[in-house]
Each structure stands twice: as C-alpha cells, then as structure tokens.
Simulated assay, not measured.
Amino acid sequence: PTYTNAFDLEYLKRWEKVTLTTSAYYNYSTGVFQFITLETGDFVEIENPDDPDNPVFVPIQVRTPINLATDTRYGMEFTTIYVPKRNWRFTLNFNVFNQQLRGDYTYTNSQEEEITQVFDADNLAWFTRFSAKIPLPGKVDFQANLFYRGPTENAQSLNKGILSTNLAFSKDVIKDKATLSLNVSDLFNSRKRRSETRTDNVFTYSEFQWRERQITLSFLYRFNQKKNQRNGNRRGNGNGEDFEFEGS
C-alpha cells in the first residue's frame, strides 16, 4: 500500500450565475507505485536488414512495477461553473502541481552484477477539464467533455500530453417515452499514451491506446415509466475522461 498525508485549504464563492472554487493542497506519500525499466544484462540477436552477415545485438529490458519512492506534491486547483440560463451549464477545471519523487532501486542482473539506479525526479504537471451541456434546436440535448493532461517526466521517461474529447446528443421521442442518443468517444482519436524511455544503452518510444474512437447510437424505450423516473439513465457518454495508463 501507499500511505499519504493530505492537507487541503479550499475557498468557495457563489454569485448569481457563477460558482468559483479554489484550493491549495499538499500531499506527502510513501511507497509510491512506479513502473521502472531495468536492463537484465542479456542480449537478443536480431537480423540486420542492411547487413545480413552482421546481426544486431539488442539489450533485453524488463519493465516492472515496484513501490519505489516518496512523492511530495503541492499545488493549486481552480473550478468555475457558469450557468447562464436554465439547462445551460459550463464547467472548467484546472489543476497544477509540483511533484518531487525520491527513490532508488538495487537489483542483480543476469551477469551477477549489482545495479543501483536512482529515480529522483522533479516535475511540474498540470491537467484541465472542460464540460458543456446546452439544449439545441429541436429539443436536442448536447453535451461535450474535454480533458487534457500536460506532459510529465520522471527519471527515465517523458510522457507526452494526452487529449480526450467526448460528444453526446440525445432527444426524447415517441411522446417522451423513448430517448435516441448518439455518443462519440475520443472524437479526435487522440487518447493515447506516448512515451520516450531512456536507459543506459537503449532509447525506446512507445505508444499505447486503450480503444480507438467509438461512435454509438442507442435507443431507450421506457415501459410504464415516466420521463422523470429514469434515475439518470440518459448519460452524456459511456467513457469518462478519468482514464489511467500504466505508470502514469
């Protein structure tokens, strides 16, 4: 387990159409979970297309999770909610924090060599969310959700920024007994983890994507149930922006 001491000071202010929330926070965690890349000391032989008589020997690496480090974070968060009129709602959230990772790891490779790696890293990280919910002509409800996480860096890897955009349209039909919905998940097909990792002998670029862009059309019909008794069945989209990637 990871243990965290967390302190937060928050300020909330409401106006007629605007709500503003700000907070400052400090977290100190021990035994923080991290993915690290280790060179095993072994090599694999692969074919050299430019010179078939001279193969290339590539170091074998292992990527593994460990409870590596202590993590000190302090930052600020801002959230603004704007409701200009009934059934209209805009929400903007911005979070920025400084992260200090401290930890080292010792292991023995296949050559019986004891290797100690230092994984100290200082990083300024940030992410933002924006959502909008508005009615369109023809009694169509529209919702958009956008999430962007800025690039992050640790002792071995640089993780590039990630953008995710979801859209949803819905309309009640058949005298409000049914709802027709169209959802678009990851509109720009950009919800990918792209990272660069460097060890003593190897530079690696990797790209990982949970799922490509999805478009879903659904039809919901309510038997013996009024519109206001649906208990939130109509959702903006089926995939939230709070996704997690290995080692993030």
Rank of each mutant, 00 (worst) to 15 (best):
N239T: 03
N201A: 13
N201V: 03
Y82N: 05
T91G: 14
E244F: 13
N233Q: 09
I46D: 05
E196R: 06
I162K: 07
D242I: 13
L217E: 01
V118Y: 12
L187A: 11
A144I: 04
I134K: 02
K139Q: 05
N109I: 06
R222E: 13
T64H: 00
I36Y: 11
R102S: 15
F57D: 00
N27W: 12
Y205I: 01
F219Y: 14
Y74H: 08
E47R: 06
K160R: 14
D71N: 15
Y26N: 02
I81N: 14
R230C: 00
Y105P: 07
F245T: 01
K13R: 13
P137D: 11
F78Y: 05
N183D: 08
R211Y: 14
L136T: 09
E45N: 07
F119V: 05
T64W: 01
G150T: 00
I46P: 07
R230T: 14
A178D: 03
R14C: 09
S164A: 15
K226T: 00
N93P: 00
E153H: 11
E196D: 10
L136W: 05
I215V: 15
T79L: 10
N123R: 10
N48F: 11
N183A: 08
D8Y: 05
V56Y: 10
V56K: 04
N228Y: 15
E47W: 00
L158C: 10
N87S: 10
I162P: 04
W88V: 06
L101G: 05
L167G: 04
N233W: 10
V18Q: 09
E47N: 08
N145M: 10
Y28S: 15
Q61A: 07
F142D: 07
Y205D: 07
T216W: 09
F57G: 00
N239S: 14
F223W: 12
F7H: 15
G41F: 03
D50H: 00
T37I: 02
D200Y: 07
Y25I: 02
G75K: 04
L20T: 08
A24F: 12
M76N: 09
G41W: 01
Q156S: 05
F223V: 07
Y11S: 13
D42I: 02
K192D: 08
L68W: 02
N123A: 14
Q99E: 15
N183P: 04
N237G: 12
D186F: 08
Y26P: 10
G41E: 03
S218P: 00
F147Q: 03
N154E: 12
R14D: 13
T40N: 06
T19R: 10
